[in-house]
């Protein structure tokens, strides 16, 4: 038992030192600085999103997190994805969320702090999950791919409408139906309509 733990710990230490060696922190470059800044924003933003007790602030922090994620995509040279992230996520989803917050909550509203047992439970659950994931990730040696140039829009467009392997026309079509269905669903739920006269027996009890 002890030996297993010990060997596990050594393996962990080795992997961690290897990763840091490959990062080569002694020679800072622009990309490293940018990554660290973005990571800081993302982490801080995420934590504040879920812990802030004012809902509008939480949304704002989420916005910064999403922005930083878009920055990450830019860093990875996926400009198109970064643009999508900005328009759809930050521009679309977040706007909807903010609207609904403004519709449903008063601006000065503060949540009650969650009960201690729930916070502890959450910490234990999420913490152990995170720990496990990080251990597994650290111990894994990923294959080294060749850094190919980022896709240009031509390639993206061709792949999006391609019918063969690595072509995405079918998911593209299906997702259009998905969006249609969601639209109808959202409308049918949110549309205001009068309650009919109670010719039906009352179904709630």
């Amino acid at each position: 038992m002890m030996e297993t733990i010990q060997s596990f710990m050594t393996a962990m230490m080795n992997s961690v030192s290897e990763i840091f060696a490959s990062a080569d922190l002694t020679r800072p470059t622009w990309s490293k600085w940018i990554f660290m800044a973005l990571a800081g924003v993302i982490l801080l933003g995420s934590v504040l999103t879920v812990t802030s007790r004012r809902i509008l602030r939480a949304a704002t922090f989420l916005f910064f997190t999403l922005l930083a994620t878009a920055g990450l995509y830019l860093l990875l040279e996926y400009e198109f994805l970064a643009a999508v992230q900005l328009t759809v996520y930050a521009g679309g989803i977040l706007v909807v969320i903010v609207f609904s917050i403004l519709l449903t909550s008063h601006i000065s509203y503060r949540f009650d702090p969650p009960p201690v047992w729930r916070v502890l439970g959450g910490l234990v659950a999420a913490g152990s999950g995170l720990l496990l994931t990080i251990c597994v990730l650290v111990l894994t040696v990923f294959p080294k791919g060749v850094a190919a140039p980022a896709p240009d829009m031509q390639q993206v467009g061709n792949a999006l409408l391609g019918q063969d392997v690595h072509g995405y026309v079918l998911p593209f079509e299906v997702i259009s139906i998905l969006l249609l269905a969601c639209m109808i669903g959202a409308i049918v739920v949110a549309r205001k309509s009068r309650e009919p006269e109670a010719s039906q027996p009352d179904k709630t009890e």
């Binding site: 995420s46 997190t65 990450l72 959450g122 659950a125 913490g127 990730l137």
Partner: peptide, 26 residues
């Protein structure tokens, strides 16, 4: 790119589990 892949993965893992944490407490 000279930032190791593990850094990105750990960042996303942290983000993911912060989300889980938020889902539990809120």
């Amino acid at each position: 790119m000279d930032v190791p892949v593990h850094f990105f993965l750990m960042l996303s893992a942290a983000m993911f589990f912060i989300g889980v944490f938020g889902f539990i407490i809120r």
